[in-house]
């Protein structure tokens, strides 16, 4: 009896709740807001407390990234990039470096720039560029995100570059298991066939890492703060063989996924209660002091649409 009363009180309009489902009252909505904020804080705090949580890890074949990149270049009338084992190794080292020193940026907290990794593998470049992505569950979404960003699209479709190397590195970043995609572009210093005037080129002065490399950077880099983790753990996903991995994207649970599921459940639940509440009130022809149910439905419907189209990945 008490359960039935509570059910009616919280989810259906009646005299006990002033003819409005209690869950739709401002106080209840505010409590839901607090619950969602606390839930987010707990998710964010777990890695800080030392508890490891499963992040957004996915098996993404590097060759697929290269294939899709060349596909986008072809669609734009730009020549395809040639696979470079040196750039691939440089990309792998950059990915490892980010995991080892626990940062997510073009420039490491210690000032290490992307161009150092080109030099480390002996790649003397005339032009060089770097695109980064993380937390994507498949190659198509990562490429789409880069294409939708003007600076990354410029890199991806640039006629300056002749070669490409991609590494997908999986490991622990700031307490979360994640997948990093490092995409490096380059044109060898010896390559003089570039259609860009030489005056724009900024060749690397030395193969060896040098503190003066920053002055030679071909593209401006914005440093991003990062945490230092003394005990990083990571696994490298090799690019080969692509054929074996192409159709085996393995997505684990992620903070983004769990957040989105909780948000969608909350929103759908409120929408259902609101629709039922609105129908009952309309049927009973009850006039009440309240916001417009239809306006709330439209707004929450829009929020639900945002939840459905939101994507997890980030690019840099």
């Amino acid at each position: 009896m008490n359960f039935a009363y509570s059910l009616s009180h919280y989810f259906f309009p009646g005299q006990s709740n002033n003819h409005k489902a209690k869950i739709l009252h401002s106080s209840s909505i505010f409590l839901i807001v607090i619950f969602l904020v606390v839930y987010q804080l707990i998710l964010q705090a777990l890695p800080i407390t030392g508890v490891k949580i499963l992040g957004y890890a996915a098996n993404i074949p590097p060759d697929e990234i290269i294939k899709l990149t060349n596909q986008k270049r072809s669609e734009s009338g730009v020549s395809s990039l040639v696979y470079s084992s040196e750039l691939t190794e440089a990309a792998r080292r950059k990915g490892e470096h980010m995991l080892t020193y626990d940062y997510w940026a073009h420039v490491a907290p210690d000032g290490t720039e992307p161009w150092k990794f080109f030099g480390d593998v002996g790649y003397k470049y005339r032009f060089a560029g770097e695109n980064l992505a993380r937390d994507f569950s498949n190659p198509n979404d990562a490429i789409a995100a880069w294409i939708n960003s003007s600076s990354h699209r410029d890199n991806l479709l640039s006629t300056k570059y002749k070669e490409i190397g991609v590494a997908v590195v999986e490991g622990d970043l700031a307490g979360q298991e994640t997948t990093l995609i490092v995409q490096l572009f380059g044109t060898q210093l010896a390559d003089t066939t570039s259609n860009v005037p030489l005056v724009q080129a900024r060749p690397q002065a030395s193969v060896a890492p040098s503190p003066t490399l920053s002055a030679l950077s071909p593209t401006p880099i914005v440093p991003v703060g990062a945490l230092i983790s003394p005990e990083p753990t990571h696994t490298i996903i090799e690019g080969e063989p692509f054929q074996e991995k192409a159709n085996t994207y393995k997505v684990l649970i992620s903070p983004f996924g769990s957040t989105r599921n909780v948000d969608i459940a909350t929103t759908v639940f409120l929408l259902i209660v609101m629709i039922v509440d609105g129908l009952i009130i309309a049927r009973r022809k009850i006039t009440r002091v309240s916001g417009r149910t239809f306006a709330h439905l439209a707004f929450l419907g829009m929020i639900l649409a945002i939840l459905l189209i939101a994507k997890a990945g980030k690019i840099l």
């Binding site: 401002s26 909505i29 505010f30 839901i32 807001v33 969602l36 904020v37 987010q40 983004f256 957040t259 989105r260 948000d263 909350t266 929103t267 002091v289 309240s290 916001g291 709330h296 707004f299 929450l300 829009m302 929020i303 945002i306 939840l307 939101a310």
Partner: peptide, 26 residues
């Protein structure tokens, strides 16, 4: 002519809910 404080608060908390949800996935 039915603008009351409780109505204003209701719109504000729903707006807050929407922003918090969107922020959490963005």
């Amino acid at each position: 002519r039915d603008l009351y404080l409780s109505v204003v608060v209701e719109y504000l908390v729903f707006a807050l809910l929407g922003i918090v949800i969107a922020f959490s996935v963005i």
